[in-house]
Computed example of a mutant assay.
Amino acid sequence: MTRRCTYCPEQSDNCRPTDGACPRCVPVITAAGVFGEQGAADMLRLLADLDAVKQVVNGVAEAGITADLFPDDDTDDPVSLRYVDGRLMQCKDIPDAAFVDAVRARAAGSAHWAMAWDVLEELEETVGPVPRNLFFAKARRLVARGLIGGCPCGCRGDFHVPEACIDPSRCCNPAPVLTVVS
């Protein structure tokens, strides 16, 4: 049964039967009971802040962009969201060939390997913004399948193509051999 909350204008079908509080108001009432009026005021401010964060996250998700939700944070790793075809981006949305080509392109300018941030930059030129967690998840899958070598743990990577591997017995799976059948 949907009814109006006793404490706010919200309609809810799961208000508490004892006092008619909706799930949103329950923490405010609890804070007021434990900490008095100041506790209730602090909880209301916290709920308003949470609503503001939800609006930012929903706006970012609907726009399909990558955004830094905490601009005052001094880390260089923003919280990333990206929507593809109306859903959150997944590893399958990053083509294997594009990732391997990005490794090959960035490794070409060095001895034989490329750092993760360089590969990510190259990959983003092809497929658009890629969240770091998906980048490393895709790298783990490609390393496991032997399509690239390197370390997908989140460090600098040292990614390389298998044919450029210095010591395949310690690093890469044997490079897949493609044969043409006529």
Rank of each mutant, 00 (worst) to 15 (best):
V56T: 13
A40R: 01
A67M: 14
D93C: 11
A52K: 11
A40T: 01
L50G: 10
L44A: 09
K54A: 06
R87H: 04
V60E: 00
L46F: 07
T66E: 12
P71Y: 05
A32H: 08
P71H: 03
D77S: 10
V57W: 04
V79Q: 03
A31D: 13
R82Q: 08
A31Y: 10
R16D: 12
G86D: 10
N14S: 15
A67K: 12
C25K: 01
D85Y: 04
C22W: 06
A21M: 07
R16C: 13
C25I: 08
K54Q: 09
A40C: 06
T75A: 15
E62R: 04
I94V: 10
L50Q: 15
A63M: 03
Q90F: 02
D19I: 15
Q90N: 05
V28K: 01
A63Q: 07
T30M: 11
A52S: 11
G33Y: 07
P71F: 05
D72A: 15
V84S: 03
I29L: 15
A97Q: 14
A41Y: 05
Q90G: 10
G59D: 00
A97I: 14
D85M: 05
D85V: 03
D76R: 13
S12C: 13
N14Y: 15
S80C: 14
D42G: 04
N14F: 15
S80T: 08
R16T: 13
L50P: 03
T75E: 14
M43A: 11
C25F: 06
P71S: 06
Y83N: 13
Q38S: 11
